[in-house]
Lab assay of single mutants.
Amino acid sequence: IDAAQIVDEALEQGITLFVVNNRLQYETSRDSIPTELLNKWKQHKQELIDFLNQLD
């Protein structure tokens, strides 16, 4: 699994991931984030931050 897949998966569930001051953040209108997704974010945090920083 790679960062792009995780970002896409989040988007499919209505969650936008982004980076502020090198910290992973998210925006969503959902009430809660699925635990499975949160765990993936934690496991791949640095990859996600690097990936999202490249997009900007």
Rank of each mutant, 00 (worst) to 15 (best):
I1Q: 12
I1D: 07
I1T: 10
I1E: 08
D2E: 09
D2G: 10
D2C: 15
D2F: 14
D2Y: 12
D2V: 14
D2P: 09
D2W: 12
A3V: 13
A3L: 12
A3P: 14
A3I: 14
A3W: 07
A3S: 05
A3H: 03
A4T: 04
A4F: 06
A4C: 08
A4Q: 13
Q5N: 07
Q5T: 10
Q5M: 11
Q5D: 08
Q5P: 03
Q5H: 09
Q5S: 13
Q5Y: 09
I6K: 01
I6S: 01
I6T: 03
I6P: 01
I6L: 12
V7M: 05
V7S: 01
V7Y: 14
V7A: 03
D8G: 13
D8I: 14
D8H: 15
D8Y: 15
D8A: 15
E9N: 04
E9H: 05
E9Y: 06
E9L: 04
E9W: 05
E9G: 03
E9I: 03
E9F: 05
A10M: 03
A10D: 01
A10Q: 00
A10V: 02
A10H: 01
A10E: 01
L11T: 07
L11F: 10
L11V: 06
L11Y: 09
L11I: 08
L11K: 14
L11R: 14
L11M: 11
L11D: 05
E12P: 01
E12G: 11
E12K: 14
E12I: 09
E12S: 14
E12T: 11
E12F: 08
E12H: 10
E12N: 12
E12D: 09
Q13S: 07
Q13I: 08
Q13A: 14
Q13F: 14
Q13M: 15
Q13W: 15
Q13R: 09
G14T: 02
G14F: 04
I15W: 03
I15A: 03
I15S: 01
T16M: 11
T16P: 02
T16A: 06
T16W: 12
T16R: 15
T16F: 14
L17S: 04
L17K: 00
L17F: 05
L17R: 00
L17Y: 01
L17I: 07
L17C: 04
L17G: 00
L17M: 05
L17Q: 00
F18M: 09
F18T: 10
F18V: 10
F18Q: 07
F18K: 13
F18G: 05
F18C: 12
F18S: 10
F18Y: 13
F18W: 07
V19S: 04
V19F: 03
V19H: 02
V19T: 06
V19K: 01
V19G: 01
V19M: 04
V19I: 06
V20N: 07
V20E: 12
V20L: 10
V20Y: 12
V20G: 05
V20D: 07
V20F: 12
V20H: 12
N21L: 06
N21W: 05
N21G: 11
N21S: 06
N21D: 13
N21Y: 06
N22K: 05
N22R: 05
N22H: 07
N22V: 04
N22A: 07
N22E: 06
N22I: 06
N22D: 08
N22F: 06
N22T: 04
R23Q: 15
R23T: 15
R23H: 13
R23C: 15
L24F: 04
L24W: 02
L24V: 04
L24M: 03
L24D: 00
L24G: 01
L24N: 00
L24I: 07
Q25V: 14
Q25C: 15
Q25T: 09
Q25N: 09
Q25R: 13
Q25P: 00
Q25W: 15
Q25I: 12
Y26K: 01
Y26G: 01
Y26D: 00
Y26F: 10
Y26E: 01
E27D: 09
E27P: 02
E27Q: 13
E27C: 15
E27A: 14
E27G: 07
T28Q: 03
T28H: 06
T28D: 02
T28E: 02
T28S: 09
S29K: 13
S29I: 08
S29Q: 11
S29R: 12
R30Q: 06
R30A: 07
R30Y: 06
R30W: 05
R30G: 06
R30N: 08
R30L: 11
D31W: 04
D31M: 08
D31N: 09
S32P: 11
S32N: 10
S32Q: 11
S32I: 11
S32E: 11
S32H: 11
I33C: 03
I33K: 01
I33L: 06
I33W: 03
I33V: 12
I33F: 04
I33E: 02
P34V: 03
P34I: 03
P34F: 02
P34L: 03
P34Y: 02
P34W: 02
P34H: 03
P34A: 05
P34Q: 04
T35C: 11
T35F: 12
T35N: 11
T35R: 11
T35M: 13
T35G: 10
T35H: 10
T35P: 12
E36I: 08
E36L: 07
L37M: 09
L37C: 05
L37N: 02
L37E: 02
L38S: 06
L38Q: 06
L38D: 02
L38V: 08
L38T: 06
N39M: 14
N39F: 12
N39D: 12
N39C: 09
N39P: 02
N39Y: 11
N39W: 11
N39L: 14
N39S: 09
K40R: 08
K40W: 05
K40C: 12
K40H: 05
K40E: 03
W41D: 00
W41F: 15
W41N: 00
W41L: 11
W41S: 01
W41K: 00
W41V: 08
W41I: 15
K42F: 13
K42S: 12
K42D: 11
K42R: 13
K42L: 13
Q43G: 05
Q43A: 13
Q43E: 11
Q43D: 08
Q43S: 10
Q43I: 12
Q43W: 07
H44R: 05
H44T: 03
H44S: 05
H44P: 01
H44L: 06
K45R: 12
K45D: 09
K45T: 14
K45P: 03
K45H: 13
Q46S: 08
Q46H: 07
Q46D: 10
Q46A: 09
Q46F: 08
Q46M: 08
Q46I: 07
Q46N: 10
Q46R: 10
E47L: 13
E47D: 08
E47A: 14
E47H: 07
E47S: 08
E47Y: 07
E47K: 09
L48A: 00
L48Q: 00
L48G: 00
L48N: 00
L48F: 02
L48Y: 00
L48H: 00
I49H: 02
I49G: 01
I49M: 06
I49R: 02
I49S: 02
I49E: 04
I49K: 03
D50N: 12
D50M: 11
D50R: 12
D50L: 10
D50Q: 10
D50P: 03
D50F: 10
D50G: 06
F51M: 03
F51C: 02
F51N: 01
F51H: 07
F51L: 04
F51W: 09
L52Y: 02
L52A: 00
L52T: 00
L52G: 00
L52P: 00
L52K: 00
L52C: 02
L52V: 02
N53E: 07
N53H: 07
N53V: 11
N53K: 12
N53R: 12
N53L: 13
Q54F: 10
Q54M: 12
Q54V: 07
L55V: 11
L55Y: 11
L55C: 08
L55P: 08
L55M: 12
L55A: 10
D56L: 11
D56Y: 13
D56V: 12
D56C: 11
